[in-house]
């Protein structure tokens, strides 16, 4: 095969997706960086970069970052989002592990079916799944009545399940759970049962077998599952919007409001950049920890 032919086919295969993603992913991302240094337009959007000649604001500024750091408020919302993401991830992990283990230890012919059972609810629109909890947690539903009946029996004031941080957490966990189960299962499936048998022969009890053998080996699955839950939860705005109460604003809601609520694009861009940096930092950390988990 000729060299030019090879170069041509290489170019024909690589260029289209690369160019498309450069145009519609990388360039927009850079535009957001730029926007975070611009002034807001008087009626929304961005103030122009070039002088419009009428004395209005234009060009670049650090004002938006200054505004972000002028008050701990915004960082606090970011930290709260981290907290919610961490809690969701942890709960997902606890719920997902038994399922993933069960599937991995099931007879081979059942595994595909069980995996499909995990994927199916995940294939319905996530708004539908969030909405389901609106019905279940609503004050008329049996759950809230049972809980409040119980609280009443102890002389405690009734609580609202819907429109609360609890509802937000339930929604987050419910929507993202399959993201944890699948990578965990893929990992656990590869474990060699011989290792566990060997541990048993050496006198390890069930708990020791899990803690000393299975858990360390499953760490790469735990890390990738955690990343797949943590990162989407971090940017989520719809679930707090629908299930949240009066204190459940997360960074996603704040960003959304800047663009579609209060006409402050540059500050929205600034918040996006801050969130992006956090995610990139986390991804780096996860990659590093994942490597450590495999070697250690």
């Amino acid at each position: 095969m000729s060299r030019t032919e090879d170069r041509l086919s290489r170019w024909a295969v690589t260029a289209p997706p690369t160019l498309f993603l450069l145009a519609f992913f990388l360039v927009p991302a850079l535009i957001v960086v730029l926007a975070s240094f611009q002034y807001p337009g008087e009626f929304g959007g961005l103030a122009p970069l070039a002088d419009p000649g009428d004395g209005s604001e234009h060009g670049l500024t650090l004002e938006n970052y200054r505004f972000y750091f002028s008050d701990f408020l915004f960082t606090e919302i970011l930290l709260r989002s981290f907290l919610v993401a961490a809690a969701s991830t942890l709960i997902c992990l606890v719920l997902a592990y038994p399922v993933a283990w069960l599937i991995a230890r099931s007879p081979k012919q059942h595994r595909d079916l069980l995996v499909l059972l995990v994927i199916l609810p995940f294939a319905s629109n996530f708004l539908i799944r969030v909405y389901a909890w609106m019905i279940i947690l609503g004050p008329q539903a049996g759950l809230a009545q049972a809980v409040n009946g119980l609280l009443g029996a102890f002389g405690l004031a009734p609580v609202s399940l819907l429109f609360s941080p609890f509802a937000v957490l339930v929604g987050m966990v419910y929507v993202h759970l399959p993201f944890m189960i699948l990578p965990l299962y893929t990992n656990l499936e590869k474990h060699d049962p011989v290792l566990l048998d060997a541990a048993q022969d050496l006198g390890a009890n069930a708990w020791q077998r899990f803690w000393r053998v299975t858990w360390p080996l499953s760490l790469p699955g735990v890390f990738s599952g955690s990343a797949l839950v943590f990162i989407p939860v971090l940017g989520m705005f719809a679930i707090p919007d629908i299930l949240g109460g009066t204190r459940d604003m997360l960074i996603g809601n704040l960003i959304k409001d800047q663009f579609l609520g209060v006409r402050d694009w540059p500050f929205g861009a600034t918040l996006s950049i801050v969130l992006t940096l956090c995610v990139l930092g986390l991804a780096g950390l996860a990659a590093w920890a994942g490597k450590g988990g495999r070697h250690g």
């Binding site: 535009i31 940017g235 996603g252 663009f259 996006s272 995610v279």
Partner: peptide, 15 residues
């Protein structure tokens, strides 16, 4: 794919 969706949504909106 890996970033929170809102970031892609916002950047495409501005773009």
């Amino acid at each position: 794919v890996a970033m929170p969706e809102i970031l892609l949504g916002v950047s495409l909106l501005v773009f």
